[in-house]
Nucleic acid binder design. Sequence first.
DNA 1: GTTTGCGTTTGAGCGCGCTCCAACGCCTAG
DNA 2: CTAGGCGTTGGAGCGCGCTCAAACGCAAAC
Lengths: 162, 162
Amino acid sequence: MATDELMARALAALGDDGPLSVEAIHRLADLGDLPETMTIAEVADLLDISPHTLRYYERAGLVEVARDGNGHRIYDADVVRRLVFLTRMRLSGMPMRDLQHYISLVDSGAHTVPERLDVLVEHRDTIRRRIRELTLSLTAVEYKIATYGGATGPDVQDPGPA
Amino acid sequence: MATDELMARALAALGDDGPLSVEAIHRLADLGDLPETMTIAEVADLLDISPHTLRYYERAGLVEVARDGNGHRIYDADVVRRLVFLTRMRLSGMPMRDLQHYISLVDSGAHTVPERLDVLVEHRDTIRRRIRELTLSLTAVEYKIATYGGATGPDVQDPGPA
DNA sequence: GTTTGCGTTTGAGCGCGCTCCAACGCCTAG
DNA sequence: CTAGGCGTTGGAGCGCGCTCAAACGCAAAC
């Protein structure tokens, strides 16, 4: 089963510190047991976003959500899965308009699969670049902490006493 | 010399792909040969930000910049070094107000060094968290690319044909 | 002398992604 | 019957980090 491999990779990536990992892996892999339908509050809880944001995503055209007799939103499992995907992409920095583009591709049929893959690949590369940038920043900050002399200036020269 | 070690760590962190690394390492370590003074355009070029942004940072209280006889800004090496630090922090996601706080600490004297270190350590942890988040997202996106079936839904089940 | 180019200032405007407000509806508990 | 709680809508507002407009100054080039 592919899930195991995914979990293993996620675990490996997460490394040492934090409760975040457990929760995050949960969200990454634990989509099997979704209820048939959910209320807006339940979905908001699940995704850790506000009901406001969910309505906003709907207005933005990212999802279509059915209503019950009272006009209240009913989120079915498919919609929730799409929202899981969308929030994951948002969290990793994909802008709303790219998401709107992607969804428009999804909604226009199977022939857009290659273009969708392009979007994903490009986003993957963006994430990789960002990770490299952050890793570099991390190195700089760690260096500055280690050699702190009080100056805002060069991390590299004149380290001074800690 | 500490620079070598820093370079080595940065190189190790950067890994395989890209011209970004060379340029980035340059910025990380190559602060020794700054001119005595620079114009706003030169600094903007160096930092890859706009003159607008430089003026904005000044208005925000992050730096004080001297003027020449015509009222034009003159950036000396110390100010430029501070700006290098500031843009590095901005690039790694530190909000303007944290930067303002940090600078206010710097400007209030050596006794704030411990508090400055607290700020840096907290930011370091923020960067680490963000890297972990992005690594997780990257795994998810890579998985979705690898198993793409066209659904926006679960990355984990029903992979379908590539 | 005028044009070109780079700079200055104050203050307004913008793009993004929410976030909230006001007015209202339905349903249930007390 | 009424109060509380959760939901609805359209539209306004916000926080962030720039980004730009307008009106102006100085100086070198033509």
